[in-house]
Design a protein around this nucleic acid. Structure first.
Lengths: 327, 327
DNA sequence: ACCAATGCGGTCAGTTTCTGTCCGGAATCC
DNA sequence: GGATTCCGGACAGAAACTGACCGCATTGGT
């Protein structure tokens, strides 16, 4: 009967939403006898979900941590929060979770009601882009999930692409795998127009629409997708390695820059600060907020960069009443 | 029977993991006849999940977006990604999702296998703290979820708290609601030691352990938790409102600062840029990366702040070989 | 020490429904 | 037109679910 499995699912949801439930409460909620509730609980346990129960006046049932994740029953707000969080995770380029974030995103996005999708879109305009600098062009999360779904489901894609030289083209591809390398997403795919494997930078894909499924899995000419993409990229990442000597003690520096950089005491009054960054603007913020003088060890470009900031900031004045109104 | 509901759940999971499944495939996977698969699909449809099916040689079943979220069946990696994303969402203080993030986090964290919890912990050390400045002291996500669970489940908490004046104390409280105000989390709770309602800053709670449930819900002496917390906070947020006139056209400015600030054309060569921030360091980064001169309209404090940066940056020099090695 | 509240699980009988096997029909793609 | 695939009715036997009843164990408070 539909009622019995649906009821089991509802029970799971109730146990996820609230810790303590007495068997009596559950029975009333589910409109069955307590005996049946006990049997349903037993069923959940058989399925591997650890429902704990405590007898006594303060007893009740609760779902505990077990060996496997139970199916998550989410309400609207929670689903939206999860999608926003996953989008951030996919963009942030945190090694070790970005790929999983995209996979989960593809899964959630595919079944998410459109009304929730609209809310996510609305929120995305408020959400902070992961990176300041244009160095890491942010990728439209929707496109990312479209591509992730296509990879998962073996669906051909028709994409419009702009290559390094700025040439536009439309291609039909068989997407294979998404790879996060450095701070960018790449797509390893078989290009049906060129009859060869290619890697595409996802931020250079303007549109992507599905175009039917394909059956036979071609063999990637590399150990794995990561190796393939890496081999195809000649451009080395700029990725500055910043090292400065700050005229402050290590504790002060650590407090100011948080975990963004590694700090190391040089002596009581000098601290070595190291960080990596795509652009020189980030380090400028970190160094500026230190509130202490410092000497640049590397890269040399940082010095003129900071001097340029100094020059501009030095020229800053407060606007006069007049200026505030008309040019 | 355990098999039938478990099978329905497995079917749901299969449909979430891969788009196209032929009825035959599903039957083999689930070890039942094709007819039963059809019946299971029908069951899912009865439960409100829109399983679409296409006849023909390329047909198959797939789960589409529907009116409600189906229970999410996640694998380990995806669960970890979701938790990391939610933690970021809870910390980031994005209005409209922070509360939901915490709720979802409480839900997920409670049933998450410990092996996954360990992975999340490991990743957290790598994850970037939401804020630069010490203005927003980051909150331990684990503590946040503990408290959220306690609120949800009406569980007493024993907390050790450090108040504004730096005095430590241990209190037993009945937690009511978590509130995000500005960039900080507050807990509205009834303090059993003081016999009155209090708001606690979550970042000032050192430890929180559950101490039994409570039944009777006390009445909060305010319209809602937000109002209560807000009324209890005498300290007004600094929250600078920055407004500057940039000597560049609106497109350039928009490209440089992204969505962090609102920009408005003043004339072809001047753009008004507005943003709000807890500290003056953030705007400094935004203004520095502009690469253009500008005039400050407000706040006046910004000018000396920038001048201080200018002075420090102006003094910066490249370290000599000597300095790099020994002081 | 006792009592109330709560969960546990056995048994039983009646009802429900689930399953596999048939089948003809319809839609889709080549 | 043919192959493939999904659809859903009918049927019979097997399996299960459900509610009712029972005595028992555990917990917390009086």
């Amino acid at each position: 009967m539909a009622t019995t499995s649906s009821r089991t699912l509802r029970l799971l949801s109730l146990l996820q939403n609230h810790r303590h439930w007495s068997g009596d409460d559950l029975a009333r909620r589910l409109e069955v006898s307590v005996r049946t509730v006990r049997r349903d609980v037993e069923r959940l346990r058989d399925l591997g979900y650890p429902v704990e129960a405590a007898p006594g006046v303060d007893g009740g049932y609760q779902l505990a941590a077990g060996a496997v994740m139970p199916p998550l029953v989410l309400d609207d707000d929670e689903a939206v929060a999860i999608v926003v969080g996953l989008q951030a995770g996919a963009q942030a380029g945190i090694e070790g979770i970005a790929e999983s974030s995209v996979r989960a995103l593809a899964k959630v996005a595919h079944v998410m009601p459109t009304r929730l999708r609209r809310r996510v879109d609305a929120l995305r305009t408020m959400t902070v882009p992961a990176a300041w600098s244009d160095a890491a062009a942010p990728v439209d999360p929707e496109r990312l999930t479209t591509i992730a779904q296509a990879c998962r489901d073996s669906e051909r894609l028709e994409i419009s692409y702009t290559d390094k030289a700025g040439r536009h083209s439309t291609r039909e591809i068989e997407p294979h795998r998404l790879v996060l390398l450095g701070r960018r997403w790449y797509l390893a795919a078989y290009d049906l127009s060129r009859h060869d494997w290619r890697s595409f930078r996802v931020d250079r894909i303007q549109t992507a629409t599905t175009a039917g499924t394909f059956r036979t899995q071609r063999k990637l000419p590399a150990k794995d997708a990561l190796a393939f993409v890496r081999s195809g990229i000649e451009e080395s990442f700029p990725g500055f390695t910043i090292e400065v000597i700050v005229e402050a003690d290590v504790a002060t520096v650590r407090a100011a820059v948080g975990r963004w950089a590694t700090v190391e005491a040089r002596d009581d009054e000098h601290t070595v600060l190291r960080m990596t960054s795509d652009s020189l603007d980030w380090p400028a913020l970190a160094l500026g907020s230190l509130g202490a003088d410092f000497t640049v060890v590397s890269p040399p470009e940082l010095v003129p960069h900071l001097h340029a900031w100094a020059a501009r900031f030095g020229r800053v004045v407060l606007a006069t009443e007049d200026e505030q109104r008309t040019p």
